[in-house]
Computed example of a mutant assay.
Amino acid sequence: MAIDTSNTEPISIIPGDTVKWKRTLADYPASAGWALSYELLNAQHRYQIAASADGNAHHVVISPQTTQNYAPGAYDWRARITNADEVYTIATGRLTISPSFGAASDVRSHARRTLDAIEAVLEGRATSATAEYEINGRRLKYIPLNELHAMRSKYQREVAAEEGKSGPRGVSGRIVVRFGA
């Protein structure tokens, strides 16, 4: 089965996938010498993508070998059109590069990682009543249990919202109704 080429820029990229789209720009046809390019940018990375001419249209293809090397995160992008000495930014947007399943990285959300860490601390606290200690002049103070429980509730709500659930116990927000004869 062939995948249709989109006529708009992607909103997300999965590393290791081929990414294609085509832009037809009436005021800047490729057949008249206009060249379309894209730049993806975030605080740590910058990627440049060039379109190729396809009649009057501009065709973008990013190979799986290229996308495999893209770092995950949110990126701002801009599309620029050039011809000789003329350069115009014609569009801007935002996209996300997903974490690669082949990478050894933690793909959990911030809320899920934080909730898991809080729960691990609470489980460890069950065996320790120490609130503060000092070793070789370095002092460590624990977060009080009531604050940990409050933080836990907050992050349970965030995780539930991310997962499409309404509460910390995994109760769905859906109401199921059955009509019988």
Rank of each mutant, 00 (worst) to 15 (best):
S12G: 03
S12E: 13
I13G: 07
I13R: 10
I13L: 02
I13K: 05
V19E: 10
V19M: 09
K20P: 00
K20W: 02
W21C: 02
W21T: 04
K22G: 04
T24H: 04
L25C: 09
L25V: 10
L25S: 12
A26K: 07
Y28Q: 04
A30F: 03
A30L: 05
A32T: 11
A32E: 15
A32D: 13
G33K: 07
L36K: 01
E39F: 02
A43N: 15
R46T: 12
R46H: 03
Q48Y: 11
A50P: 05
A50R: 10
A50C: 05
A51E: 02
D54Y: 06
N56S: 10
N56Y: 07
H59C: 04
H59T: 02
S63A: 10
P64S: 11
Y70T: 06
A71V: 07
P72M: 10
P72L: 07
A74S: 12
R78Y: 05
I81D: 00
I81V: 00
T82W: 02
T82R: 15
V87D: 12
V87P: 06
T89P: 01
T92M: 02
T92S: 04
T92H: 02
T92I: 08
R94W: 09
T96N: 08
I97D: 01
I97S: 02
P99T: 13
S100G: 08
S105T: 08
S105F: 03
V107E: 04
R108S: 14
A111M: 10
A111G: 11
A117T: 13
I118V: 14
L122Y: 01
L122K: 07
E123M: 07
E123C: 06
G124M: 09
A126S: 13
T130E: 08
